[in-house]
Design a protein around this nucleic acid. Structure first.
Length: 279
DNA sequence: ACGCGTGCCTGTTGGC
DNA sequence: TGCCAACAGGCACGCG
């Protein structure tokens, strides 16, 4: 389940493989993979990749600038649950879950492939120009990056009746947090996931934001969490799953106090917390 | 406007 | 052992 640290890891591992390359071929193997607002994949032909960045859980392949505002400026990829971006040799065969392929040529004429594989087909690719991004509600409403957020602004954004965990998962509140890092950051901050968001004091909100940023940075350092499907653009897995304090550990002993970790469903999501450490 | 429930999708898991 | 329901979960959507 790629969240902010996993997408950041994919972006970093992908950049050296695609930067400066020209898109010389495209294949769409599953129509629904292309976002409804997307320009056709063929509009990428001949365009050079400037670099790779990230916004929340979105991976962004940036293109070299051109004069016409109608032409795409970037390719936005949402991996959702099982999406993968993988660099492959020119003669690599597509797999049964390959949904899209970009053929990339370097200055020497050498070709490399970029595969978008996605078992459960929830992932999306959006070939976008600025006007298209403005039309895209999800993009417009996307909250700030956790690392750019001040304590005051965070507290303001938590002024809701909903559970604090549901609030953290809301991409309009802040961008990039999914089920893993919501549970982990709430544990680190000692806050129960079912507390109404608006019930957090200024001090608790500050503690939670600090814990969240710390957990996200630590996970990036460990190249993300690989539960089942996640790997980076070179096929490497992350190791942060070995550091989980609560996620996926319901019924097991708390690593801090030894109490039995509790499971609950919150907004339809599996949630694990320590009834002793979190209040 | 907000908050909640449901559908999407397929591979894996666990209970009977 | 084999079958099948439950589960994984981010987001769009519809409802109250």
């Amino acid at each position: 389940m790629p969240e902010l640290p996993e997408v950041e890891t994919v972006a970093r591992s992908l950049a050296p493989h695609v930067k400066g390359r020209v898109i010389c071929g495209t294949q769409l193997l599953l129509d629904s993979t292309l976002h409804p607002l997307s320009l056709p994949l063929s509009s990428l032909l001949g365009r050079t990749i400037a670099g790779v960045s990230r916004r929340g859980k979105l991976l962004i392949i940036n293109l070299d600038p051109v004069s016409s505002p109608e032409l795409p400026t970037c390719v936005v990829v949402h991996l959702r649950m099982t999406g993968r971006l993988l660099t492959r040799e020119a003669n690599a065969k597509k797999g049964s879950h390959t949904r899209c392929i970009l053929e990339l040529q370097d200055a020497c004429g050498q070709t490399e492939l970029l595969f978008f594989d996605d078992t459960r087909t929830f992932g999306k690719i959006l070939v976008a120009a600025p006007a298209i991004l403005e039309q895209w509600k999800f993009w417009r409403d996307l909250g700030p990056e956790p690392f750019d957020l001040s304590g005051g602004e965070f507290l303001l954004r938590l002024g809701r009746k909903m559970a604090i965990k549901s609030c953290l998962l809301d991409q309009g509140v802040l961008a990039g947090v999914g089920n893993i890092y919501a549970d982990e950051s709430l544990f680190q901050a000692g806050i129960r996931p079912d507390r109404p968001a608006a019930s957090l004091t200024k001090e608790e909100a500050a503690k939670l934001l600090k814990a969240l940023c710390k957990v996200l940075r630590l996970s990036i350092k460990h190249c993300g969490s690989s539960i089942r499907d996640y790997m980076d653009a070179e096929g490497n897995v992350g190791s942060f799953q070995n550091k989980f304090m609560v996620y996926g550990r319901g019924g097991e002993a708390c690593r801090k106090c030894g109490a039995t970790l509790e499971r609950m469903r919150l907004g339809g999501r599996a949630t694990v917390f320590c009834p002793h450490c979190q209040h």
